[in-house]
């Protein structure tokens, strides 16, 4: 039994079948990657996990709750956090406030009229936020405006924001997209260390094979809206079906995204 179970999910837009009988089982404590060529349906699938899209048929169960038909903030409260392709942070606020907000959200729920206490009076929240910033190595930038940071730092901040809520499942949508080489590597290191320390289940949607093979413990390959192979990384490399799916995209093993 996995923590996230996807069964027989179908989704079509107009006449186009985006997802076709997708079955997926993400095990607790593992890093599970979902890969596939462009247009394979990766993003559609992800959007079905987070309440943005509702599948035509099928079920998405997380930790015993259906994720279908509920709002993103409710999904988050069940324990699912999400990292976006472009870091979604509060760019007009300081790094410190960016980290505090998820801490308060976790403590206070979806709405609390906490209008008369001072932010700085909440020592427990401050401790938590500080610990997170130390973890992602941003503590010396805590007074910076979030928008003035580098892409890699923004990613770290976003990660810290997600992790400060102690999620049961962390969804990552191409976490290294558009990053410089050094940022990509440091992000990989960060994810590895988080996984080691916190044992958080992660589902990564990724295009960059280098990232996938250095992180994932299990890989599902999506092609034309359906899962064609699901296996450990060693078996995915050189799998004929995978090669076929990536036809025209050079060899699977060294396929680096170069945009």
């Amino acid at each position: 039994m996995g923590i996230l179970e996807v069964q027989n999910v179908n989704k079509s837009f107009g006449g186009l079948k985006a997802l076709h009988n997708v079955n997926l089982d993400i095990e607790e404590g593992k890093i599970h990657a979902i890969i596939g060529p462009n247009g394979a349906g990766k993003s559609t699938l992800l959007n079905c996990f987070v309440g943005k899209l509702t599948p035509d048929t099928g079920t998405v169960m997380f930790d015993g709750h259906s994720l279908l038909g509920i709002k993103p903030y409710e999904i988050n409260q069940l324990g699912v956090s999400r990292v976006f392709q472009t870091p979604e942070i509060f760019s007009e606020l300081s790094v410190w406030e960016n980290t505090l907000i998820p801490c308060f959200a976790k403590r206070d729920g979806s709405f609390t009229l906490n209008a008369l206490s001072r932010v700085s009076d909440n020592k427990d929240m401050a401790e938590k936020a500080e610990k997170m910033l130390v973890d992602v190595d941003l503590i010396n930038k805590k007074d910076m405006l979030a928008s003035s940071m580098s892409r890699g730092d923004k990613r770290r901040l976003e990660m810290a924001m997600c992790l400060s809520q102690n999620p049961k499942l962390l969804l990552l949508d191409e976490p290294t997209a558009g990053m410089a080489r050094a940022d990509t590597e440091s992000t990989i290191e960060l994810l590895k260390s988080i996984q080691k320390k916190l044992k958080i289940t992660m589902a990564i949607i990724e295009h960059d094979m280098g990232v996938v093979f250095s992180l994932a413990q299990k890989i599902s390959v999506l092609a034309q809206g359906t899962v064609i192979v699901e296996d450990i990384p060693e078996n995915i490399k050189g799998h004929p079906k995978v090669k076929e799916a990536y036809l025209g995209e050079a060899q699977v093993e060294g396929n680096m995204r170069d945009d």
Binding site: Y73, S81, F90, I101, G109, S110, M161
Partner: peptide, 9 residues
């Protein structure tokens, strides 16, 4: 958007 994915309505 981020606030929604942070559990805030």
């Amino acid at each position: 958007n981020r606030l929604n994915y942070t559990g805030i309505n």
